[in-house]
Simulated assay, not measured.
Amino acid sequence: MLDAKRTPDDRFANLPGFPWAPHYVDDLPGYEGLRAAYIDEGPQDADRTFLCLHGEPSWSYLYRRMIPVFLGSGARVVAPDFFGFGRSDKPVNQSDYSFDFHRNYLLALVERLDLQHITLVVQDWGGLIGLTLPIAAEFAARLDRLIVMNTAIGTGQPAGPGFMAWKNYALSTPDLPIGALIARGTPHLTPEEIAAYDAPYPDASYKAGAQIFPALVPIEPDMAGADYGRAASAWWSTEWNGASFMAVGDADPVLGPPQMAVLRKQIKGCPEPMMIAGGGHFVQEWGEPIARAALEAFGGR
């Protein structure tokens, strides 16, 4: 079993705007003994499930402004925490994290929960991994719709200087100031909300996943995950026939409008995006109007 840390429950007391109790599973195939956390709200037999995937260095708390809108439509909402983030266990060695480590976890969790009629909701690493899931036929059969925000498909293409600076900073900063990093592009966060983003990490020893995640982005053709990205790009451009909705925080310096225009061309039938004026990288912090617009685009449900 991997050497991992578990954040004490009292770190998550009184999270502002996030009243939902976590669910846990610790026996997923290949992850036995590692406890994964996820939010699972709404009717278990709902005819739609919103699967909300967070990115780096956030956790499912990021979706607190969107979850109530989705629940209000009568849907089921599932929001997992990646290992290394949120309430999920946190392997302490950077070498334990990989593209497959995270991707296979999501596939195993979706199968365990038997999620059906999925609306995939992704941003940042939630998209880098989540957008590769449909190349697994068993996931594609469960997928109906897509909501995509400030992300990309990693196909092994070089990244720009902004991303490289972030990657180098994360790798060289063991005690990443996570709440402050998220707040930097999200000026309306309260001190209590910033603290909620810091809650999963009592100290630097819990942050191996947050440190290594940027270095796992497939920016070279032979990196792990690049083959998934190339296959996913082909799948979304040729095989995808579901409904899509795109929202873009226009103040994101790394995955803003130019990069999202590239992604839009990769997704067959993706309409013009909803632009969030002044919206930063963590655009879910402007999430309520995005969720409402997406539901309207999908016919109100």
Score class of each variant (00 low, 15 high):
I178C: 05
T151G: 01
D81Q: 00
P134T: 10
R64W: 03
L176Q: 08
V92Y: 08
G154A: 13
P158E: 10
Q116P: 10
T119G: 06
D100Q: 14
F70W: 15
T190V: 07
P158I: 13
D198A: 11
P91H: 12
V69W: 06
S60E: 07
V78M: 09
Y97N: 06
P134R: 12
N104V: 03
F70N: 00
A152M: 15
P57M: 04
Q94D: 11
Y105C: 02
A170D: 01
E192P: 05
R64D: 02
G55A: 08
I67V: 15
W125Q: 00
Q157T: 14
F139W: 05
A79R: 01
L120C: 07
Q157K: 15
A137E: 15
D198E: 14
A75N: 09
E111P: 03
Y169L: 13
A141G: 09
G130W: 05
V77W: 09
A141T: 12
E138A: 14
G72I: 07
E56N: 15
D96E: 13
L128T: 15
F163M: 11
S88A: 09
K167T: 06
G127Q: 02
T186D: 03
S60N: 13
L62P: 01
Q123N: 13
W59I: 01
A196P: 02
F99G: 03
L176D: 00
D114H: 13
W125S: 00
N104Q: 14
S88N: 08
F83H: 04
L120S: 04
A183S: 13
F70I: 01
A165G: 09
W125V: 08
L120T: 08
L113N: 04
L109C: 06
N168I: 08
A108M: 03
V69S: 04
A108P: 02
H102D: 09
